[in-house]
Design a protein around this nucleic acid. Structure first.
Length: 483
RNA sequence: GCCCCGAUAGUGUAGUGGCCUAUCAUGAAGCCCUGUCGAGGCUUCGACCCGGAUUCAAAUUCCGGUCGGGGCGCCA
């Protein structure tokens, strides 16, 4: 490609980041669209997807889209060779096209008398143009068409669905959530780790695992990094986090469950449940605050789309939650649900429709600490003097909810070996099966706590998505294993 | 595992036994116009999931199948 004559100025990416010019473009579309006045008469090379190709005469308007925005290229038959002109003019939408030409201000549209003239817009007047890759027609689904496309069709064609601005924005925001989350944990001294996803046995019990063949023996896909995070803590890493997949072989089919999901986990030594709840609320606060400060453009893109729906959806807003988040202890939650007229007793699970009742009093994020020990896994800690109203043993396990939906569960972990073994027995598990884990506690173990947060569910809250499949690029559910 | 629901052009839909040679939008093909502005105008193309049954007549009713959707249960 043509070498840019500019000194090394960097392209501007979509979020103010610097993108180095590449062999296929000297500028991004967003850069020219936003900073066109500085670039007038500059020769540029741009590349993108053809979003609309209009004009069948001696002129052609080519609307291009790349990862940073949209820009029109103006092609005039006289200005470039006839073959390229004809090819572009008859190209299908979504073909990828490269254009070289000079930046110019667009001719202002005709406005009715009395109406204000719109802000100046820019375009590239093509001197040459090439189809990099021709798109076939028709598309399996439209990118800019106004027809609604159903989720299964979108997921079957996710690579095309992702070209739609609001879908693209959701996944850019996902990256931001992880970035800001990491950023925050690092400032609190956490280090990133990875645990194995191939495991020899059910690490916790309680959920169905996907069996797999590991050479000659049977193995499973990991349901959670839980036990390995703890082993890292026992080994003295003090503060760790992991962002990685978890697999559950449950045949559920709801808007919030998937069989493969990304869990954002932490584990922290010399800490209890309250300590790690504080880490979590500070982290979520940091994520929301950072999105509000830096990424309103992505929220705006989603809102543009929501406004165009029929009927229009309410705009989403990034409301930075105030600290601390409410703590609604399990026993109090049961009372709230009972007061709402529901037949529930201490020891019952709090289901989604129950959570609605709590959410009515505590909109937004709230913690549900101090669940009954009987409802929590064997590795959750308890103080024997902490009892519920009927005398039931309380645990130091907690959930984080947003509205009706569980975002996270966590707790202080049992670090006392004898009690750990007792818990396993009480829950009908054989301690011998967990020796690799239990033995870790025999040689000194710090009290510790941690949690696991569903990234896609958090992204649902941030983007207003009504289905977790919206916030996972290639979701794996009961029926879907492709693409 | 349980309970509902659905399947019509590439996409999204209308359709409740004959008016269906199947609606509309979007799309695609072509033409006209045009420095266009989610451009506009005209023409054309393109579909009833599969098998069986009822009926003079089935996209429409019934049975079976396949595929899919929603909810619940289950689920650190």
């Amino acid at each position: 490609m043509k070498k840019d004559k500019r000194p090394p100025i960097f392209m501007t990416g979509r979020d103010g980041s610097t993108w180095m010019p590449t062999s296929y473009r000297t500028h991004t579309l967003g850069e020219i669209a936003r900073g066109g006045s500085e670039l007038i008469d500059t020769e540029v090379t741009i590349s993108g997807y053809a979003e609309a190709i209009r004009g069948r005469g001696a002129i052609c308007f080519l609307m291009l889209r790349d990862g940073t925005g949209h820009l029109q290229a103006f092609l005039k038959k006289d200005n470039l060779d006839e073959e390229s002109f004809t090819n572009i003019q008859s190209a299908n939408r979504e073909s990828t096209i490269q254009v070289t030409g000079k930046v110019a201000q667009k001719r202002p549209p005709k406005v009715k008398e009395g109406e204000p003239t719109p802000a100046a817009e820019y375009e590239v007047v093509a001197s040459s143009a090439t189809i990099l890759s021709a798109a076939e027609a028709p598309m399996p689904m439209g990118v800019t068409d106004k027809v609604n496309v159903e989720l299964p069709t979108r997921l079957d064609n996710r690579h095309i669905d992702l070209r739609r601005s609001h879908v693209n924005a959701i996944f850019q925001l996902r990256g931001k959530i992880l970035q800001y989350g990491r950023e925050h944990l690092v400032t609190e001294g956490f280090g990133e780790m990875n645990s194995p996803k191939i495991i020899a046995s059910a690490s916790e019990g309680g959920t169905n695992l996907f069996p797999m063949k590991y050479f000659e023996t049977e193995a499973y896909l990991s349901q959670s990094p839980q036990l390995y995070k703890q082993l890292a803590i026992l080994g003295g890493l003090e503060r760790v986090f992991e962002i990685g997949p978890a697999f559950r072989a449950e045949e559920h089919d709801t808007y919030r469950h998937l069989n493969e999901f990304i869990s954002f986990d932490i584990e922290m030594a010399f800490a209890n449940d309250e300590d790690v709840m504080c880490v979590q609320e500070r982290m979520i606060h940091h994520i929301w605050k950072s999105v509000a400060e830096n990424d309103q453009n992505l929220i705006d893109i989603i809102n543009d789309w929501r406004e165009q729906q029929e009927p229009p959806l309410n705009p989403i807003t990034v409301d930075v939650p105030s600290l601390p988040f409410p703590r609604v202890e399990y026993s109090d939650a049961i009372e709230i649900i009972q007061a709402a007229g529901e037949n529930i007793t201490w020891g019952d699970d709090i289901e989604a429709h129950h959570a609605d009742m709590i959410a009515a009093e505590y909109p937004g994020f709230y913690f549900l600490p101090r669940w009954p020990m009987s409802m929590k896994p064997f590795y959750i800690y308890h103080n024997s003097d902490e009892k519920g109203p009927g005398g039931g043993q309380l645990s130091r396990g907690f959930d984080l909810n947003y509205g009706r939906d569980e975002m996270c569960s966590g707790g202080q972990r049992e670090h006392r070996t004898e009690i750990l073994i007792e818990n396993l027995k009480n829950m009908g598990l054989n301690p011998d099966d967990f020796s690799f884990y239990v033995d870790g506690f025999r040689f000194g173990a710090p009290p510790h706590a941690g949690w696991g947060l569903g990234v896609a569910r958090l992204l649902m809250v941030l983007t207003g998505a009504g289905n977790v499949r919206e916030t996972v690029l290639f979701p794996r559910d009961r029926r879907r294993c492709t693409p």
